[in-house]
Structure formats: structure tokens, C-alpha cells
Design a protein around this nucleic acid. Structure first.
Length: 746
DNA sequence: TTAGGGTTAG
């Protein structure tokens, strides 16, 4: 290091001080420190404190904590610590080096605190890494009392920090302070306040602030658009975006289009998405990794997996979020095996997986119902040290449950150090899906007992559990709980409620829930139509559908399936047929799928019109002819009408298309038995055993006190089985006697 | 001392 020639002997020249200041501003920190080192080495006396702020700043930026402390001791030795500029810099150095406590010691010892002092300490408290945000608020209050004038950056930081507090009142109070102090005219403060309201979910306040603003910049618009996207109102954010285009002074940037892509995926509006994609390319935004990631996500969520992959391939820069986005996109589009393959490429490129990657992989395994792959990901989870990560473990529990390994899921759940709302909900759903209703309910009770909060998803699981157990008392309890917790007014919950009651046979209660549901959607209507169908009230189902059409609501595939099923079970063959024909020919845009055709075949079969059923199969599109359910429906029709000729063909079709499903064998066996073909019937049952086909048997539920007892035909698992069977015998005897007596009278 | 809005997941 060469010392500038213009140095006065014995002291530091003015030029030299200037050089230090400028070099610090230019980021030549090492050079400044070397010069300071020379000054100290030669022993040039330091007569004023003006060089210390620069030197300390260099130490901070170079992470040279040790040297900084020696500078601090030099400051003390010279008696310069009483200068507020030096004290402020020392404090800043300690705080930025991660030693908040040392910074606070300097702060407490300072005699001359100025506005900068307060700003520095408050900044320190609100640093992203800092954990003393609450302290920061206290300092702010104290500073205000001492007449301190905050600067814009401090105010912005406070507004950011307030997001971490759940107390919305703090935000409202601060808003008041900003008005009183006249700072609310500054755009960056307004933007930060608006974002705070967005974070609180107070969209009305955010929008009011937005409307009142006279100068809106790109950030204002983006924050507002992003806010509505976050609140789930993609439609309105797209409207705002159109409005923004009309304002000449502002132009959307990378951050704006990211929010717009998210809005498009929410609204499934691929047309606007493509348009904005073109705009982004024209403006050169597509090189931004955030923009690329959002595009991948948008195309995936709009079911355009190919386009998502194209964008992903063309991205100039990819990060872990890019990989996770495409993986989740593939999962979203049911391309599970492809997701697993792509993970292989990700590894080849040396990109390290994170928790989100693991969750995506587990999702794939779950849908593939592949126990081996689940276990292999599980071992990877352990190797990567994610064994105690709630997000990952929750997904593992879910995946194992879907693979029928509820016990393994339960083991993981029990071993969790920390469980969150999702852990509990996942486990409850797992029990529910496995038919373990008592376990599910007990777990929910435990969840309440340990004071874990629950959300509408938990309530949905709970309602499903109650629906499966079909016990009215339980259902009413769950309904009460849904009301008390404030979730009953949500459409999804209300729909689950009506479904639950219908499964208990309490169709009038279902209707009462339906009538009270606000913002009913196509799912609610379909559920109610389905409920009528399930309870044999086909006429009511058809009437409700007419009402739905009057409301102008478009039925979806499920609505129509529910209607056809209602007609099928209610024996309204003509009505079902005419409805089906009307929907195909009208401008509903309805294209029947294989389930609809199966339902039609089932309906005609139940009515004993096997020829028409066969005709339907002949006429339907070729691609549906290989669906096992179609032939299954025909087969059950044959069984009911003992049409063995058609049955033979149907049996072989079902067994060919679904060799591991139990339906074909069981229907076949019972049909042969009904026709006295005992050998063939036995053969069917032998095949079931030989092939290891899993038989799902029907069961009855009896509630004794608060316990549900499950009975499968001829099982002896109940502890009082013997007594039960002897009672059944006795009852049979009574019935025989009654029959006999009837005979006598007839 | 120095500031405001963005992407993936159960």
C-alpha cells in the first residue's frame, strides 16, 4: 500500500480523509483498511474522529470482526466514543456483525443520542436475521417520546416487521401515527403499509389505501395485484392488471408479471397467460428465474404439461424452485413416473434436493401406490436429515396411508417431535380412509385436548369419518363443532355436511343444510342431487336439477353422473334416457365419459332391458370399450335377469380387463350359483384365492353405546359372537314361526 | 444507519 504523497508530516491531511471517505463509498474496503493500518503502524496521530465511521464500515463489510474491535479500542483510547457519529458507527458495526448485545451496550453508554442512533438500533432490531423485533418496537416508542424523527427506511422496516406480529391492532395504530406525522405522503411508506394490510388479509383496507393514493408507481400496482392473488381473487387482480396497462406513467415489470401468472393459474386463464408470456418475452423478462418458475407453474396448473416443460427446458438459469415447480407440475398432470425420471436428471445435474423436492417425489409414489418407492424415498429422507421435518414427515404419513400402510404412518406420527395442524389432519384422514373411524375420532379428540388448532380441512376429514360411521348422534356433534368453530359457512364444509347426513339416511337434514349454504357452487348442487339419488328419491333429484338449470348453473360431469345414478337406482329409466340424450344433443358441451356410459348400462340392466344395454355399449366411442366398469355393469344386469348368454361374454371381458379386481369373480360366481352351475361358481372362488385378489366385502355397522361394531357375513370376530349367532338363530326361528302362521291363515 | 412488490410443497 502506497501512502498518498500529499500527507502532512505528523498528521492526516484533508485530502487523505477525503480519499478514505470516497474509497469506502466505492467499496474499496480492503484498501481503506490497509491505509488505516499504515497510519497506526507509522504512529501518525489521529486528531479528529472523522475517519472512524469509514474504517468501521469497511470492517463490517469485510466481516473482519477482530479488526473492528481493535478499532473500537483505539476509539476509546482517543476518547472519541462521545462523538455521536462514532458511537453510531460502532453500534452499527456490532449489530451488523451479529453482536446485538455489544451494540446495545454501546447504545446504552452513549451520552449524545441523535436520530441516527435511534435509526441504527431500530434497524438492528428489525434486521431479517434478528430475533428482537419486539424490542425494536419498544425502542421506537422510547425514541418517539424523546422527540426522535424517524427516516423513511426505518418506517418501512417497522412496517415490514409488523407483518410478523399477529396483532393487527399494532398495524392500525402505526397507520394512525403515519397520518399524524405526515409520513403517509411518501410512496414507499404507502406501499409498505398497503403490503402490511395484504399480509393481514385486510384487503378492504389495502384497496382503500390504494384508491386514495395519488401517485402510484409500478410497486404500488404490483403489490395490489399480488395482494389480490394472495387473497385468492385472481379474477380481480387480472382486472387491475388491465387497468394498470391503461396508465401511461407505469409499466409492469418482472414482479408484476409473476403475480399475473399466478392469477392466471388460479383462474385457469391460459389465454391471458399466453398473452402476458409474449409480453414478458418482448420485454426480456423471461430470463428472470422467478418469471420462468411462475411460467412453469402456470402452464402446469392449467394442464399444459408440455408447455411447462418447454419453458423449463429453455430457462437460461434454473434454481431448486425451478426443478420443484416442474416436478410438482408433472405430479399435477398425473405424470408421476415422469416426475421420478426427471428427479434422476436433477441428480445427474448435481442439483441437491430439498424438502419440497421430497414432498413432490412422495406425491408421485403415493399416486403410483408404490410401497417400494415410498420406502426408498423414506430412506433418502433419513439420509438427508429431513427425518424431523414436519412437511416431509406429513407427506410420508400421507403416502404410506395411501399405500394401505396406516400402521407405518401411525408409527411416524407417534415419533414426531413436533406435530402441526396438517400432521393431525393427515393422520385423521388416513384412519378415516382405512375405515378406522374410532381411531380417527379418538385422534381428533386428542388433537383438541392438546389444544392444537384445526382448520376446515380437519373438519372435512372429521365429517367424512362421521359419514362413514353413519351414526346420527356423532354427525350432529360434528355439525355443532363445525358451526362453533366457524367453518360451517364454508361451501366445502357445508357440502360435506349435507353429504354426511345423506349417508345417515337423513335426507331432509341434508336439504336443510343445502338451503342454508351461502354461495352454493356446482359441487354443492351435485352433492344434493347425489344425496337424493342415494336415498332413492330420483324425482327430487331431477326436480333439483331443473332448479339448478333455472339458476343458470352449468352441470359438470359429476352432476350428470349423480343424476343418471339417481334415475338408475330409482327406476326412472325413461327419464334417465331422455336426460342423457338431451344433454348429448344440447349445447351443454357435455361429453359423456366411461362412468356415464357404465351408469347408463347399469340403469338399463337394472330395468332388465339387456338388449338396450348391449346396444349402448355398441354405440359408445371405441376408447371406452375397454373399461372394466362397463362390462361389470352389464354382468350385474345379467345376474339380475339370469341372462347367461350375454353373461358369459361379460365375465370373460371383466376378467380380461381387470384380472385383479374382485367384482368380476364375485359377480360371476354368484351368477353361476344362481343358475345352479356349482362347479363354475366354485371355479371362480378358487381363482380369487389363487390369484391373491383382494376381496372388499360389504359390512353392517351396529352402534352399541359409543362403540361401532362391524359385521361381515359369517365372521366370528366379535367377542360376543356366539351369543349373537344364537340370538340370530332364535330370531330366524321366530320368523319361520311367523311365516308358518301366515301360511296357516292364508 | 438507508427503503417498498415476486416463484415451488403436505
Amino acid at each position: 500500500m502506497r501512502i498518498p504523497a500529499t500527507i502532512f508530516p505528523g498528521s492526516i491531511s484533508q485530502n487523505w480523509k477525503q480519499w478514505i471517505k470516497e474509497s469506502t463509498l466505492q467499496g474499496q474496503w480492503q484498501e481503506v483498511l490497509s491505509l488505516y493500518y499504515e497510519i497506526r503502524r507509522i504512529g501518525i496521530p489521529i486528531l479528529d474522529p472523522s475517519l472512524f465511521p469509514s474504517v468501521l464500515k469497511c470492517c463490517t463489510n469485510l466481516n473482519n470482526f477482530k479488526y473492528g474491535t481493535s478499532v473500537h479500542s483505539c476509539i476509546i483510547k482517543h476518547g472519541f466514543e462521545s462523538f455521536s457519529s462514532v458511537g453510531n458507527s460502532t453500534m452499527d458495526f456490532y449489530i451488523k456483525s451479529g453482536f446485538m448485545n455489544y451494540g446495545l451496550t454501546v447504545f446504552n453508554l452513549m451520552e449524545n443520542k441523535d436520530s441516527v442512533t435511534w435509526n441504527v438500533v431500530i434497524h438492528g432490531c428489525f434486521d431479517k436475521k434478528s430475533s428482537s423485533k419486539y424490542e425494536g418496537l419498544k425502542f421506537f416508542k422510547q425514541a418517539k417520546a424523546e422527540g426522535f424523527k424517524p427516516n423513511i427506511s426505518t418506517l418501512v422496516l417497522i412496517l415490514q416487521a409488523l407483518r410478523d406480529f399477529s396483532d393487527t391492532n399494532l398495524g392500525f395504530c402505526f397507520h394512525g401515527f403515519l397520518i399524524r406525522s405526515g409520513f403517509l405522503d411518501v410512496v414507499s411508506v404507502q406501499n409498505s403499509l398497503m403490503s402490511l394490510y395484504v399480509e393481514y388479509g385486510e384487503m378492504v383496507c389495502a384497496k382503500m389505501l390504494f384508491d386514495e393514493m395519488s401517485d402510484r408507481d409500478c410497486i404500488t400496482w404490483s403489490a395490489m395485484i399480488g395482494g389480490f392473488v394472495k387473497a385468492g381473487d385472481g379474477y380481480f387482480s387480472l382486472q387491475l392488471f388491465r387497468e394498470m396497462f391503461g396508465v401511461e406513467e407505469v409499466e409492469p415489470d418482472e414482479l408484476t408479471v409473476v403475480s399475473i401468472f399466478k392469477a392466471c393459474s388460479q383462474e385457469k386463464d391460459i389465454d391471458i397467460g399466453k398473452l402476458v408470456h409474449c409480453y414478458a418475452v418482448k420485454r426480456g423478462f423471461n430470463v428472470d428465474v422467478y418469471v420462468g418458475n411462475s411460467l412453469v407453474d402456470m402452464y402446469s396448473k392449467c394442464s399444459h404439461a408440455n408447455l411447462a416443460f418447454e419453458v423449463f427446458k429453455e430457462m437460461p438459469e434454473r434454481n431448486i424452485v425451478s426443478w420443484n415447480s416442474i416436478l410438482s407440475g408433472l405430479v399435477h398432470n398425473e405424470l408421476y413416473a415422469k416426475a421420478l425420471t426427471l428427479f434422476g436428471s436433477m441428480q445427474k445435474e448435481g442439483v441437491e434436493a430439498d424438502e419440497v423436492t421430497l414432498v413432490n417425489l412422495l406425491q408421485s409414489c403415493k399416486h403410483l401406490v408404490d410401497i417400494g418407492k415410498c420406502k426408498s424415498i423414506h430412506s433418502r429422507v433419513i439420509r438427508m436429515g429431513f427425518e424431523f421435518n414436519e412437511l416431509v414427515v406429513n407427506s410420508l404419513i400421507d403416502a404410506y396411508a395411501k399405500c394401505d400402510l396406516v400402521e407405518l404412518g401411525q408409527k411416524l406420527f407417534n415419533g414426531m417431535e413436533r406435530r402441526d395442524m396438517v400432521s393431525w389432519s393427515t393422520m385423521i384422514t388416513a384412519f378415516s380412509n382405512a375405515g378406522k373411524t374410532d381411531e380417527a375420532l379418538n385422534l381428533f379428540r386428542e388433537m383438541v385436548l392438546v389444544k392444537e388448532k384445526f382448520n376446515s380441512v380437519t373438519i372435512l376429514s372429521l365429517l367424512e369419518v362421521c359419514a362413514v360411521s353413519a351414526e346420527l348422534k356423532r354427525c350432529k356433534w360434528a355439525h355443532g363443532l363445525a358451526i362453533r368453530s366457524g367453518f360451517a359457512s364454508e361451501v366445502a364444509v357445508a357440502t360435506a355436511l349435507l353429504d354426511m347426513y345423506s349417508k345417515c339416511g337423513e335426507i331432509d337434514l341434508s336439504r336443510r343444510v343445502f338451503d342454508k349454504t351461502p354461495n352454493r357452487n356446482v359441487v354443492s348442487w351435485s352433492a344434493m342431487i347425489g344425496a337424493y339419488g342415494m336415498n332413492g328419491r330420483a324425482r327430487d333429484a331431477l326436480d333439483l336439477f331443473s332448479e339448478m338449470e333455472i339458476y343458470g348453473l352449468k352441470p359438470n360431469a359429476v352432476t350428470i353422473l349423480c343424476l343418471l345414478s339417481a334415475c338408475s337406482h330409482g327406476g326412472l329409466v325413461e327419464e334417465g334416457k331422455s336426460l342423457f340424450n338431451r344433454l348429448i344433443s344440447s349445447d351443454h358441451g357435455f361429453e359423456p365419459n366411461s362412468a356415464h356410459y357404465s351408469c347408463m348400462v347399469d340403469m338399463l340392466g337394472r330395468a332388465g332391458i339387456i338388449e338396450s344395454a348391449m346396444d349402448t355399449i355398441k354405440k359408445m366411442p371405441q376408447r371406452f370399450k375397454d373399461g372394466a366398469s362397463i362390462w361389470g355393469a352389464l354382468l350385474s344386469a345379467c345376474r339380475n335377469s339370469s341372462n347367461s348368454k350375454v353373461a358369459e361374454g361379460a365375465i370373460s371381458k371383466v376378467l380380461e380387463l381387470e384380472p385383479m379386481g374382485s367384482a368380476g369373480y364375485l359377480l360371476g360366481s354368484s351368477m353361476y350359483a344362481a343358475n345352479g352351475l356349482w362347479k363354475e361358481a366354485a371355479n371362480m372362488r378358487r381363482l380369487v384365492k389363487e390369484k391373491g385378489v383382494k376381496v372388499v366385502s360389504g359390512y353392517s355397522l351396529i352402534h352399541v353405546d359409543s362403540k361401532a361394531c362391524r359385521f361381515v357375513a359369517r365372521d366370528g370376530y366379535h367377542e360376543k359372537a356366539q351369543q349373537i349367532y344364537s340370538m340370530v338363530e332364535e330370531l330366524h326361528g321366530c320368523m319361520r314361526m311367523k311365516e308358518g302362521r301366515n301360511d296357516l291363515f292364508n
